[in-house]
């Protein structure tokens, strides 16, 4: 019996936890982007939004051509990457300049997006930096989820109502059962009395 309970509760936990776990990856596309705005340039570079497009807008002709070596061959991407990382690490000035360029590019692309979207977008949204906007959407979504869960948890009160209603029916059935018993007793009593009276008469 205990084993059955363990299996059932494990199953229940998995059944309940599963969907909760399964939701997370799909919902949060770039939590990493909010990590630390001051030194977040590297994160922004990796962000999925539209850095590629932004960079392309800023340095269009450069991005189009593959980086070339002095001797005519192309530089492999891995080398470029490590060179870039070294530069970001060592050269603070360049990092900041790059950061500003990227921010500018992102904002520009966001502005572009906003302009392309519905005309009645709130003006606030254009001004907010993208990570702030992401934060606020994230918070809104979490609040919605919490409210939904609260509303759905309200099923307790419907369940109690249903239980009360059927309890009334059962109460009535019990009441009738008792009355039936009393009736049976009354009939038996009557039978006894009549038999007695008939016996007396004889």
């Amino acid at each position: 019996m205990r084993r059955l309970y363990t299996i059932l509760s494990a199953g229940a936990v998995l059944g309940l936890a599963g969907p909760a776990v399964a939701q997370n990856p799909g919902d949060t596309p770039a939590p990493a982007a909010q990590a630390d705005p001051a030194t977040g340039s590297s994160n922004r570079a990796r962000s999925s939004q539209s850095p590629a497009g932004g960079l392309a807008a800023v340095s269009g002709e450069d991005a189009a051509a593959a980086p070339a070596r002095a001797d005519g061959g192309t530089i492999p991407p891995a080398e470029l990457k490590s060179a870039c990382e070294r530069a970001l690490r060592d050269d603070a000035e360049w990092r900041e300049a790059l950061g500003r360029q990227l921010t500018g590019a992102l904002l520009a692309s966001l502005d572009q997006r906003v302009d392309d979207a519905e005309p009645d977008q709130p003006a606030k949204k254009r001004k907010l930096e993208p990570w702030v906007e992401q934060l606020s959407t994230e918070i809104e979504r979490k609040i919605h989820q919490r409210e939904n869960r609260a509303i759905q948890r309200n099923n307790n009160h419907v369940i109690m109502a249903y239980a009360a209603l059927w309890a009334l029916v059962l109460g009535f059935v019990v009441f009738m059962w008792n009355r039936q018993r009393a009736l049976k007793a009354e009939i038996a009593q009557l039978q006894l009395e009549v038999e007695e009276a008939a016996a007396d008469d004889e």
Binding site: V169, F172, V173, L183, L190
Partner: peptide
């Protein structure tokens, strides 16, 4: 279902009452 059960009970109650009255009338009780 409840109605049928309850009608059955009413009928029994009425019959018991009638029997009692008849017995009283007949001087048995």
């Amino acid at each position: 279902l409840l109605l049928i059960a309850r009608v059955g009970q009413s009928r029994i109650q009425r019959q018991v009452r009638e029997v009692r009255e008849r017995a009283l009338d007949a001087g048995l009780l």
